[in-house]
Simulated scan of single mutants.
Amino acid sequence: MVTYIIRRIIMAIPLLIGITILSFAIVKMAPGGATTLLMDPNIKPADLEKFYEKYGLNDPIHIQYGKWLGNMVQGDFGTSLVRKGTPVSEMILNRLPNTLLLMGVSTILAIIISIPFGVLSATKPYSKTDYTVTVTSFLGLATPNFWLGLVLIMFFSVKLGWFPTGGTQTLNAPFSIWDRLHHLVLPAFVLATADMAGLTRFTRTSMLEVVKQDYMRTARAKGFKATKVIYKHGLRNGLIPVITIFGLMLPGFIGGSVIVESVFGWPGIGKLFIDSAFQRDYPVIMALTVISAVFVVIGNLMADILYAIFDPRIEY
């Protein structure tokens, strides 16, 4: 297993380099530039030239990429073009805990809701319960995150006043876990919605195949309780295809957090990414792109490891 993991990590290095090359080229080809300076009508050409010279923006694109890659390997993502003098790594580290908290709660919420409902739907196929779960799942898949977030804010925050409209904590209030969870409920639910729907459908489909297997009929014939047969004997095998989806959920949460954090004003790396994109803050965009690519690799690696945990027949 250890050898397999090391080999997968080594194989991921060329993939990550390829992603950085494409991302760097796309960012450089995007229209606009250092907008904070270009939007200043009083900027002097000499000052603008000094700015481009300082950040190496006059160099050929392959020279710029080589310098950036060399610094990135050493853990230096450069400094922000917008927030002058602020290291990019510092900006990301300040916001990363908020995104990890949001992703962690959303993942747990998606798992504890979707898997039981998927099993329930599979054990009662083509019943009213099954149709209800199916329709709800399709609605979850079809509903855009930004629209759902705005609807929940209008109803639960503005109209009922049950939850705050955004942010991570109440302004000028001392830190408390309850206050943080109070602000976390709506964005975590919205971020988990699409994944809950997908996991529910995949769990149902997988469990429908499992309940038809001979060993399941044998377990029922021996007089075991239905819940024990389903959750102890069937669920472990039924979750194997679902693990693939779970591994892909990790990068999916990164992409979803861009929208959810913007709607709820959640100061995480998703909101930082979209703000930096509008401001053409190239060093921040590139750093977050690399981090997102690493999350994709980690998600797939986690899926492979979970395969072996849930199914001892799998060897590496």
Rank of each mutant, 00 (worst) to 15 (best):
R204T: 06
F273H: 07
M39Y: 10
I112V: 15
F273P: 11
T123V: 14
P251C: 05
T3L: 14
I26L: 15
P41Q: 10
G104D: 09
K50S: 14
G70E: 11
I17K: 10
I43G: 04
I10E: 09
I309V: 15
F77C: 13
I6Y: 10
L208C: 10
L141R: 00
P87H: 07
T35V: 15
V88I: 10
A142H: 02
R201C: 00
P31A: 05
N94H: 12
F138L: 13
R217K: 13
T132P: 01
T143S: 14
H233F: 07
G268N: 02
A122N: 06
K67M: 09
Q64V: 04
S176G: 15
I112C: 08
A293K: 06
T218P: 04
T203I: 08
T203F: 02
I254V: 14
P41S: 11
T132V: 11
A293H: 07
Y52I: 09
T35H: 12
P251R: 03
K159D: 11
K50Q: 14
Y215D: 04
L69Y: 06
G66V: 09
P164H: 06
D76G: 11
F202P: 00
T244R: 02
L69C: 06
T134C: 04
F278V: 13
T79W: 07
T20I: 13
T165P: 00
I108V: 15
F295D: 00
Q64I: 04
S157T: 03
Y126P: 03
G270C: 06
S23P: 09
F117H: 03
I254S: 01
V260W: 00
K232Q: 12
R236H: 12
V27K: 07
K84I: 15
L22H: 11
T136R: 05
I314Y: 08
V294L: 15
T218I: 11
V158S: 14
Q169C: 02
T289P: 02
V258L: 11
I43M: 10
F310Q: 07
K28N: 15
P45Y: 03
L186Y: 03
L148G: 01
M216W: 08
P144D: 13
Y131G: 04
Q74S: 14
T205H: 09
T3G: 15
P14R: 08
I259Q: 02
W162N: 05
P251H: 05
T134A: 05
L191I: 01
G167N: 00
